[in-house]
Amino acid sequence: MPRINAATVAEHRALQRRAVLDAARDLLAETGQAPSLAEVGKRAGLARSSVYEYARSRDDLMAAVVADVFPGWADRIRTAIAQAPTPAEKVWAYVESNVAFFSGSEQRVARALGSVVDPAILHGPMQEFHTALQEPLREALRELGDPAPDAVADLVDAMLLSATSQLRGAQHPEVGIDDRAAALAPLRRVLGPYLGLPATD
């Protein structure tokens, strides 16, 4: 009888868990509601009994999605900031990547999670998400020589929330490039001179 490789089994389980979480996230984005385990299994191509190996209930599944998506979102934005070559461009990368977040499927997932998940479960991951993003922004502002990086970081966030209010409230499946450009334009007009960014057409 062939031996079962423990690494292969672990890899298989990791792939199945990834499929379950991706299916749950996609269904959340599409419907705005917490999917059943049967719906997740169907989307992931797994039997419901297989889904039960990773979540015993809908609430367990949503908690697992929360634990999975927030660090991933933060990593993507932090990576965009880290790849920018100068402090000023790091600040603008923070702005651009946040606008992309607010206009993408991630925001629909976040909005759905806010309506279907216990606030006590959401509070910790959301705080960690905000902190994870604020740290590189504030560091970039310090490198830029700003005398009050904490206050300016809060102002940048306030401007982002104002500029993306329509994007965050959008109910249609996809926000277009023109919508994102419209959100970025006033931010560029205000922040561009401060950051010393080249003017755009």
Score class of each variant (00 low, 15 high):
1 M>T: 12
2 P>Q: 10
11 E>D: 08
12 H>G: 03
13 R>Y: 01
18 R>L: 02
22 D>W: 00
22 D>Q: 14
23 A>D: 11
25 R>S: 13
26 D>W: 00
26 D>G: 13
27 L>Q: 09
28 L>H: 06
31 T>C: 08
43 R>S: 05
45 G>T: 00
48 R>C: 01
52 Y>G: 03
55 A>P: 11
56 R>L: 14
62 M>W: 05
68 D>Y: 06
71 P>W: 01
72 G>C: 08
74 A>M: 06
75 D>S: 06
76 R>C: 08
76 R>I: 10
77 I>T: 05
83 Q>E: 13
83 Q>M: 10
88 A>P: 10
88 A>F: 01
88 A>S: 12
88 A>D: 03
90 K>C: 13
91 V>P: 08
92 W>E: 12
95 V>M: 06
100 A>V: 14
101 F>M: 11
106 E>Y: 04
108 R>E: 09
112 A>V: 08
116 V>P: 10
121 I>S: 00
123 H>L: 13
125 P>M: 03
126 M>D: 03
128 E>L: 06
130 H>Q: 10
132 A>K: 04
136 P>S: 10
137 L>E: 03
137 L>M: 04
139 E>K: 06
145 G>A: 09
148 A>Y: 03
148 A>V: 05
152 V>H: 09
154 D>F: 01
155 L>K: 09
161 L>F: 04
166 Q>T: 13
171 Q>L: 13
175 V>Q: 14
178 D>A: 15
180 R>E: 14
181 A>F: 04
184 L>C: 09
185 A>F: 11
193 P>F: 00
198 P>G: 01
199 A>D: 12
